[in-house]
Simulated assay, not measured.
Amino acid sequence: MAENKGGALTENQEPPLKPPFSAPPTVNSASSQNAISSTPSSNPDHGASRKSAPPLPTSALGSLPTISRKDHLVFLVEDDIDTFLKRDLDLTRLNRIHHLLWMAGRPLNARPLHRQQMMGFDVLLTEQADLHLLKFSNRLFVKPLPEYMLSYEFWKKYLCASKELHESACGFLLSYVWLICSPLDLSLARKLDLLPSFVTWPLWKGFVTSFVTNVDVNALDQVNKRYHFGELRLGRINSIYRTRFMFTHFVRGYLYGYNRYVVFFQRNFGWVLVVFAFFSLVLSAMQVGVGVPPVNSNAAFQHASYGFVVFVIVSVASLLAFIGVMFAVIFLFNMIAAISHDKMERIEREKLAQDRKNKTKSA
Rank of each mutant, 00 (worst) to 15 (best):
H46K: 05
F75N: 00
T58N: 15
S137M: 13
D80R: 06
N218H: 14
K86N: 04
I180N: 01
R260W: 06
R267F: 01
I237K: 04
Y241G: 07
D342W: 15
V199R: 03
L192V: 01
L131F: 05
R87W: 08
P25D: 10
M326R: 07
P183C: 02
N43R: 09
S49P: 00
V251K: 02
G235A: 14
F229M: 10
S59L: 10
R115M: 08
L179C: 13
F245D: 01
N109E: 13
V217L: 05
K361R: 10
E164G: 09
L89I: 06
I347Q: 03
A104N: 03
L332K: 05
F301I: 12
R267P: 01
S59Y: 06
T66K: 08
L124V: 11
F331E: 11
S305H: 13
P19E: 02
R96P: 01
D193A: 00
V223P: 04
R50W: 02
A321W: 15
A277H: 13
E14A: 00
P44C: 12
L203K: 01
A363R: 12
L73F: 09
R252A: 06
M103F: 06
M326S: 05
K157D: 05
V142M: 04
L220V: 12
Y227A: 01
G120K: 14
L100R: 07
S38I: 02
V310W: 13
K361W: 09
T26F: 06
L108N: 15
K163Q: 14
Q128F: 11
L91N: 00
N12M: 12
T39V: 09
T10V: 07
H98W: 09
L255F: 10
G7L: 01
M119W: 08
L174S: 09
K18S: 08
S52T: 08
S175P: 07
V274Y: 11
T213D: 12
F198V: 04
R244Y: 02
I81S: 01
E167Y: 06
F75W: 03
F279I: 08
E164I: 12
A219R: 15
L320H: 14
S151R: 02
S68R: 04
F229A: 08
L61I: 10
C170S: 00
